[in-house]
Each structure stands twice: as C-alpha cells, then as structure tokens.
C-alpha cells in the first residue's frame, strides 16, 4: 500500500517542478468544485490522492485518480480518468492489504455563469463511472463567487451506485461548501466542509433508507506556480448519524472514516 502513494506524489512533484509560466485550471478546494471550465483546446492533467483513515476497526484507504481534462467548446469541458487504490483492513492479528482498480470515469461540466462577472457563478456537472462490478452516475450543481480576496463555493451532489456483485443500489446525497481567502494571488487558505448521506436498502430489494451520514470539515490550502496548482485538505469527521448505530464519540465509523485528506494537482499541458 505504501509504495503506491509516494510514487504518485513523486510524479506529481516532478511535473510541478518542470512546469512553465502559465496558470492552469486552478482549484482552491479539494472536495468542493468551482465553476470555471477550460477554454476550448486547453488540456490539463490532474493527479489526485485521497487518504481515508480510521474506522471502528483498523482501516486505511488510499484512492488515486489520474484525470485528463480538455476544454471542448465555449463553457464546456470534459475529462476522462482512471481510478485505482489500495485498502488495508485488520483481519485477526494481521493487516490485509488489497489493491484495486476502480474503473474509468467520464465527466462533463458546463458553466452557466461566471464567479467574477456575474452575481453568482454556476455550473452543472455530470459524471459516469464504469468498474468491473459497479456502475456510478453522479450529478452536481455548482455555485461559487469570488469577491476580492474571498472565494466561496458550494455544491449539491446526487450519486447513484449499482453494485452488481452484491445486487444493491445506493443513493447518495452530498453537500459541500468552502470559503477561502487569498493571502496572495497564488496562495489561498480556508476551510471546507462536506455532509455525506448514504441511502441504501436494509436488504436486497427493499426500499432505500438513510443508513449513514457524516459531516466532515477542516482546513484547505491552495497554491499555484507557473502552469501548475496544488490543493490540500484534511477533513476530520465531526458528526456521524444514520440508522446504523454511530460508534465511538458520536461519529459514524461504520461507513465513514475518522479522517479524510486529499491532495489534488493540476498541470497545464
């Protein structure tokens, strides 16, 4: 498990180090999307790494994503990405580590209004993921606003997940929000929060109920130089809820982790 992440980070850092003199499609949050889209013909590569640590048992998960984004028309961009990861779970006295390929995804994002020019920036986003035993569809409404050195963003997200192996459909609703302050034009510091809700049937074929929910919040840092950018966050779980009994100190550590952290990089090609 530990071999994968450092290699990915090393590649990212090397790419940032050789980057040139133009900014890329910057993000200042890690879970919350902003509304800007690449200009037609502009291409960017985005490596991601998400660490998910600590459940009601030993658990560590690393999710990696390598994304290629391209602006296809005015206000429209698309991306194709591959998802892969590793998980470590305690099994008896040993830690079982498994690597997995989580399929390929396609996303499309259309900007409706601009975060600086209009009263509020807005965009719609759809994403589909196809894996060996799973299909995911996701839709997001994105809002953001840049006011001087302050940037606010919020998203509403619906996600449908069909697991063919377990014959279970899951519906997920998420809300994300962030606020960040630009200390300098290329350095921002803020906070980001995420409310995740999982609806699934208690048994195959039954109606879906709210089974799990959790709120995460924590600091986020954004930085850019030349034609590359970086965003990093660490979000501890603050509150857990749902019909599954929360464990620990009011947290839902059955479905969610105690901490999530994410690092995103973007390199303009």
């Amino acid at each position: 498990m530990t071999r994968n992440l450092p290699a990915c980070l090393a590649v990212c850092i090397a790419l940032v180090a050789v980057s040139g003199a133009v900014q890329a499609n910057e993000r200042h949050f890690t879970y919350t999307y902003e509304t800007n889209v690449l200009a037609p013909g502009v291409i960017e590569v985005e490596p991601w790494a998400t660490a998910r640590i600590g459940k009601d048992r030993y658990y560590t998960g690393i999710d990696n994503r390598l994304e290629f984004e391209v602006g296809v028309a005015e206000n429209l961009q698309t991306a194709l990405y591959v998802n892969f990861g590793v998980e470590g779970i305690r099994a008896g006295n040993t830690i079982a580590s498994t690597a997995n390929h989580k399929g390929i995804s396609s996303e499309w994002k259309y900007k409706l209004s601009d975060a600086v020019a209009d009263s509020v920036g807005s965009a719609v986003y759809v994403e589909g993921t196809l894996a060996a035993d799973e299909i995911e569809l996701e839709g997001k409404l994105l809002l953001d606003k840049r006011m001087g050195n302050l940037h606010l963003a919020c998203n509403a997200v619906y996600e449908f997940e069909r697991n063919a192996a377990e014959n279970i459909d899951e519906h997920k609703l998420h809300a994300m929000a962030g606020i960040t302050y630009f200390v300098r034009e290329n350095l921002s510091m803020g906070v980001e929060a995420m409310d995740s809700n999982v609806f699934e049937p208690a048994s195959p074929g039954a109606a879906s109920n709210l089974m799990h929910g959790a709120v995460f919040a924590g600091p986020v840092l954004g930085w850019s130089r030349g034609n590359a950018w970086l965003a990093v966050s660490l979000l501890p779980q603050l509150v857990g809820y749902g019909s599954a009994v929360p464990s620990g100190r009011g947290l839902n550590l059955d479905e969610f982790e105690r901490f999530q952290g994410r690092i995103l990089m973007g390199i303009h090609l």
């Binding site: 600086v116 020019a117 209009d118 009263s119 509020v120 953001d144 606003k145 919020c154 809300a175 409310d195």
Partner: peptide, 20 residues
Amino acid sequence: MRALLLAGVILTACGPSAIP
C-alpha cells in the same frame, strides 16, 4: 442542505459585476 441553500442565497445577493 439548509446550509447549502443559505450559502446560495448569500452568493446570489452579491453585488454588481467586476467585469462590466
């Protein structure tokens, strides 16, 4: 979700364009 709506209202209430 209520926080999201509140954030949306605040954002929508923001002032005139800085890109006139």
